[in-house]
């Protein structure tokens, strides 16, 4: 997986967060924490998972997503998901 792809996925995730939660794109960086910095809650995370599933066409396991803390974690798990066959 090349850097370019990771960048693309980051902007997809960023776009999803802006669209779903009306956040400011500038506030969303790789190191941003979902729960503290962006004030998301566990039910928001479920919304995000559903949205990412639609985007990638892959099924995300809820237990995998429970470990996610930062935007970078989200991007990485999407990267992994896309690598899986």
């Amino acid at each position: 997986m090349t850097e370019l792809n990771k960048d693309e996925i980051f902007s997809q995730v960023q776009g999803a967060l802006v669209e779903l939660f009306e956040l400011d794109a500038a506030d969303i960086q790789l190191e941003t924490k979902l729960y503290q910095d962006l004030d998301l809650d566990s039910l928001d995370a479920v919304d995000l998972v559903v949205h990412l599933q639609k985007l990638t066409g892959k099924k995300i396991k809820p237990e995998e997503f429970k470990m996610v803390r930062t935007v970078d974690d989200v991007v990485n798990s999407v990267v992994e998901l896309l690598q899986e066959k």
Partner: peptide, 9 residues
């Protein structure tokens, strides 16, 4: 609201 999450807020 344009999305449910925004309605929630």
């Amino acid at each position: 609201s344009s999305s449910p999450s925004i309605a929630v807020r």
